[in-house]
């Protein structure tokens, strides 16, 4: 699929909580085909300290309405500036970038695991899995009950399990502690979240010989495979997360 550079209109900026918001963008032309796991590079205007673009996963796509969403956590100056954008503002964006999650070929039991803003690509993936006849389970970890987002959206896709670090909702602890992991046999796990969480989930899957794909969030200079700044060490040498990733099978990573 050809990459594009386009100026798109913000049709909604929805604040979910103190740190998270959803930007909904509408295409002028027909949207390109996007796949779960792919991302977009956003230019932050009027933020002189934010020189480089910022990468965000495609969170949800509505081809009928010709719109798509990004779920963004305020992490610093760029995301702060984006959080202040209003309906009608224009965003310059390069997309769709990167590879995508590989859907299982047979009827496998699938689990999606996400934490914090790392849930961003999982909604789109979950919807795609459901559309392809899978019944994925979804395991989401948050700091506390106030951080839980889009619970109802995930309920439409499959069974949803929650953990919070303080136990204020769902099971207390981290995603790798959840009882769902021991009560169901999964064939494939998709994971996105903080690196420590992905490493823990990766280690769990490796121990149980479960196929596992993770989506990495390495620092990116260009997003299009030219600066070679975003590399991750793999069994095939240093690979760019922006072109060979962001989705990797954990067996390829030197974790």
């Amino acid at each position: 699929m050809a990459k594009r550079i386009e100026s798109l209109k913000i049709i909604n900026n929805q604040r979910l909580n103190k740190d998270l918001f959803i930007l909904e963008l509408s295409g002028k032309e027909k949207l390109p085909e996007m796949k779960p796991g792919q991302f977009a590079e956003i230019k932050v205007e009027d933020s002189p300290e934010t020189f480089l673009r910022r990468p965000f996963s495609i969170h949800d796509v509505n081809y009928g309405e010709n719109t798509f969403k990004l779920l963004i956590q305020i992490a610093g100056k760029g995301t702060e500036a984006l959080s202040l954008l209003k309906t009608g503002n224009i965003l310059n964006i390069i997309y769709p970038l990167g590879n995508s999650f590989n859907l299982p070929d047979e009827k496998k039991k699938v689990l999606l695991v996400g934490g914090g803003c790392g849930v961003a690509p999982l909604l789109f993936l979950g919807k795609q899995l459901k559309a392809n006849g899978f019944n994925p389970d979804i395991l989401l970890g948050f700091r506390n009950s106030e951080r839980v987002i889009e619970y109802d959206e995930y309920l439409k896709i499959g069974r949803v399990f929650l953990t919070t670090e303080d136990g204020s909702r769902g099971e207390k602890g981290f995603v790798t502690d959840h009882t769902a992991l021991s009560s169901t046999e999964y064939d494939k796990v998709y994971c996105c979240g903080p690196e420590l969480m992905m490493r823990a989930v990766g280690a769990y899957c490796r121990g149980k010989d479960i196929e596992c794909e993770v989506s990495l969030e390495n620092l990116m200079g260009c997003g299009i495979g030219v600066c070679l700044c975003c590399v991750v060490e793999t069994v095939r040498g240093n690979l760019c997360t922006c072109t060979e990733g962001p989705v990797f099978n954990i067996n390829d990573l030197k974790w």
Binding site: P48, E49, T50, F51, L52, N218, L219, G221, C227, L228, C229, C230, V231, V232, E233, N238
Partner: peptide
Amino acid sequence: GNPYPRMAETPSGMLNAV
């Protein structure tokens, strides 16, 4: 090349250590 991290954004520029 060098180990990650190889890049840092700076005001109106970037550092690289590819």
